[in-house]
């Protein structure tokens, strides 16, 4: 499965990319995070504290247990600070 993975705010800065294409067989968001974190230190650092990471799958907020079957876009970001 090919996913577009997006990073925002300090996750984007730590990883050094706003987006990338990822080939993965991850079944859930948590599996994808584990795959990414195992790649390089900058990913491990970005995903070191999952309590401060939020995720959207196909532009809908969800959580780490969400399945990735049928997913096309996954975005990781810190807790939002709008308003």
């Amino acid at each position: 499965m090919t996913l577009t993975v997006l990073y925002f705010a300090w996750l984007r800065e730590r990883i050094g990319l706003p987006r990338e294409t990822v080939d993965t067989s991850a079944a859930t968001v948590a599996d994808l995070v584990a795959e990414l974190a195992a790649r390089e230190d900058r990913y491990a650092l970005a995903f070191a504290d999952l309590a401060s990471v939020r995720v959207a799958v196909d532009q809908t907020l969800t959580d780490m247990d969400a399945p990735l079957a049928q997913a096309r876009e996954v975005a990781f970001f810190p807790p939002m600070t709008g308003g």
């Binding site: 907020l61 970001f77 308003g83």
Partner: peptide
């Protein structure tokens, strides 16, 4: 404040912080 995907970064004399 907490469910719309915006992130604020502040720039000051000491640098920038999220």
């Amino acid at each position: 404040k907490s469910r719309a995907p915006f992130w604020k970064k502040e720039f000051g004399a000491d640098g920038a912080t999220w």
